[in-house]
Design a protein around this nucleic acid. Structure first.
Length: 634
RNA sequence: GCCAAUAUAGCUCAGUUGGUAGAGCAGCGGUUUCGUAAACCGCAGGUCAAGGGUUCGAGUCCCUUUAUUGGCUCCA
């Protein structure tokens, strides 16, 4: 038998397992073998290999091995919970990004104290070091097996698997679970784990189903790695935009307005700069700006379909006995703007953008700082065009979004969502629309994932996701094709044939919502915004009051040149003033003492802690202007 | 909305088995004029989220409501 290892061919005796081979290679491996990839597929280490194959031994450094480790940990978790609460019914327990969870149906919700007990029980199981043993059962026996153990969720899982699917089970100690595998060889390999939280979670993710109790945890190769991870989480919390918003005096959400954010003066500076930038790039990209009313009458919302399908999320009111609704979306207003005149194919595409303030009554439990609010400003635009223009237009929007995200240095993920079950429109229209989006992505050679059936009922969409400090992703940009509203509002343009045609409409946002984008921005830069966005760009710090006059003059000169400058003339030590400016993450501090006054220069310090040295104000201005003009990320 | 936890000064947090509410920072008043992340002294600041209950007595125990946090669902 010849096994091709990752780094070349090796011959081994027949019937050896990957574990045996790993043992033989232990000198070379240096790291502990966790699982193996045989001919590309992940498998357990202990399974005998009796054929020629390509073998790769994975260590904890491999992401796939980490998933196997965490999945194994979830089995240990389930075993521990069953031991402590034999009546708990098992649902599912997968590995997830950075950890794992297991869902249980229990009579009483779990408590934090119980979590401590479970951790102790898990530690006992790990010490016992039970081997994982896999076996398969025919369908009927598998169902009977789980019925006998009173595991209705497992029975349901089996019943929903395809008829011919192999039904594999894994047993460690006295615990057996339905599972596709693979696992580590034994429970003892789960060395460093921690249960992190308890949460309610609906069975199969549907709120129509029963809510189960979920336990989250994480596991690492060793304690050092686990501690490093927990440390990283603590550090990430310091970047939380909710915390920084308050500390840097940018924005906050008060109990008096759940989901309705306040922007304070400094936050408003940041916000206005973003909006200025937005206007500039949209002007360059051929958009015209409009503004539509925040509140419109019921008839409009009935025609758009929102009254019937979105009313639960809308704030409504009655004026002069007529129903009105505050807009949850800008599109109906944008459509009324389109309808103000007759359109020729020569005028298309028509791109009109709007920084539109929308209100949505989101579920209270969904609110999250600036990331999920109940009133927010979408940097919306609606583009009306002929079907032939779809592909190029989508490409244009994509490039615009890409350009903006690159300006901020944001990595992003692209997802294409296709036709859902409750879709309207013909197969033909969906095929055309989906091809338009997919074609554009393919033309641009963009990596993307497909969310089958996750599109809006009115059309497919491309979503752009950005990460927050804890790695949670938030949808920001989106490009959505709409095959519904043009019909409902009977939108037309006149073609070269003199006949009326239906335009294709897309909704798109680049930043998504100004609020969410500011949240992402704040976490990404940990509050240390690039110079061009910093609410305060420069702070002048004096050492004694003999420098006050020059300090005021320096500030006046910088302000006159458009640099946002603050002055600290307080009777405090320079260390104290530096510390404060530093904590406010002000990009440049100008220290002025007797020496600087005499030489008519400023001593420049950055928020990174570097002292650049002295220079005259003109040279400083030159440097600042350069950085601002290029929107340098630093 | 659902599951769980939490709510004490502007901020970060103490507050023991129920017995008159505390610290640091920030603020204000002084002293100090100082060289790159915290000078010193003093003062003031709270209907303990709101409402109800148990008790001689509630920040502390119970109930309701509100908000927040972590998830689920939903979504920019």
């Amino acid at each position: 038998m010849i096994i091709t290892l990752k780094d070349g061919k090796r011959e081994f005796a027949n019937g050896l397992s990957a574990l045996d081979i790993a043992g033989q290679l232990s000198q070379e491996l240096k790291k502990q073998a966790i699982c193996a990839r045989v001919d590309g597929a992940i498998t357990e280490l202990w399974k005998p290999i009796d054929h020629d194959c390509a073998l790769e031994i994975l260590t904890f450094e491999d992401d796939e091995a980490k998933r196997v480790l965490r999945h194994t940990a979830s089995h240990v978790l389930a075993q521990a919970v069953k031991k402590l609460k034999p009546n708990a019914k098992l649902a599912i327990g997968p590995a997830i990004e950075n950890g794992f969870y297991y869902d249980f149906d229990v009579d009483e919700p779990f408590t934090p104290d119980f979590l401590v007990d479970v951790e102790k029980e898990m530690a006992r199981i790990v010490i016992k070091n039970d081997r994982f043993e896999g076996f398969e059962l025919p369908r009927a026996e598998a169902i009977q097996f789980m019925q006998e153990r009173n595991e209705p969720y497992k029975v349901q899982l089996i019943e929903d698997l395809p008829e011919d699917a192999p039904l594999s089970f894994y047993k460690q100690g006295d615990f057996t679970d339905l599972c596709a595998g693979p696992h580590l060889p034994s429970t003892g390999k789960v060395k460093a784990f921690k249960l992190t939280s308890i949460a309610g979670a609906y069975w199969r993710g549907s709120e129509k189903n029963k809510m189960l109790q979920r336990i989250y945890g994480t596991a690492f190769a060793d304690k050092a790695e686990l501690d490093a991870y927990l440390q990283r989480i603590e550090e990430a919390k310091k970047r939380d935009h909710r915390r920084l918003g308050r500390e840097l005096d940018l924005f906050d959400i008060r109990d008096e307005g759940p989901g309705f954010p306040f922007f304070y003066p400094k936050g408003m500076v940041l916000r206005n700069l973003l909006e200025d930038y937005w206007r500039q790039i949209h002007h360059e990209a051929g958009y015209e700006e409009i503004k539509t009313p925040i509140m419109l009458n019921r008839a409009l919302w009935e025609r758009s379909g929102h009254w019937d399908h979105y009313k639960d999320n809308m704030y409504t009111t009655k004026i002069d006995d007529m129903d009105f609704a505050i807009k949850p979306m800008n599109c109906p207003g944008g459509i009324l703007v389109y309808q103000r005149k007759l359109w020729s194919y020569r005028d298309l595409p028509c791109r009109s953008g709007e920084l539109g303030l929308v209100h949505r009554h989101e579920l209270s439990g969904a609110l999250h700082g600036l990331m999920r609010v109940r009133c927010f400003t979408q940097d919306d635009a609606h583009i009306f065009m002929t079907p032939e223009q779809i592909r190029d237009e989508i490409k244009g929007v994509y490039r615009l979004i890409d350009k903006v995200y690159q300006t901020f240095g944001f990595p992003y993920k692209v997802e294409l969502s296709t036709r859902p079950e409750n879709a309207i429109g013909t197969d033909e229209m969906w095929a055309l629309a989906t091809e338009g989006l997919q074609g554009a992505l393919d033309d641009l050679a963009v990596p993307y994932t497909i969310n089958e059936g996750d599109g809006a009922f009115y059309g497919p969409k491309i979503d752009f996701h950005l990460e927050d400090s804890l790695g949670r992703t938030w949808q920001c940009g989106t490009i959505q094709l709409d095959m519904n509203l043009p019909e409902r509002f009977d939108l037309t343009y006149t073609g070269p044939d003199g006949e009326k045609h239906r335009p294709v409409m897309i909704h798109r946002v680049v930043l998504g919502s100004i609020e969410r984008f500011i949240g992402i921005l704040t976490e990404h830069f940990a509050g240390a915004f690039p110079l061009w966005l910093a609410p305060v760009q420069v702070k002048v710090l004096t050492i004694t009051d003999r420098c006050d006059e020059m300090a005021k003059a320096v500030r006046a000169k910088l302000e006159a040149a458009g640099i946002r400058t603050e002055l600290d003339l307080r009777n405090e030590k320079i260390g104290f003033k530096v510390r404060e400016a530093q904590m406010m993450k002000i990009p440049y501090m100008l220290v002025l003492g007797d020496k600087e006054v005499e030489d008519q220069v400023v001593n420049v310090r950055t928020r990174k802690g570097d002292t650049i040295g002295t220079m005259n104000v003109d040279a400083l201005l030159e440097m600042l202007k350069q950085q601002i003009a290029t929107k340098a990320l630093q």
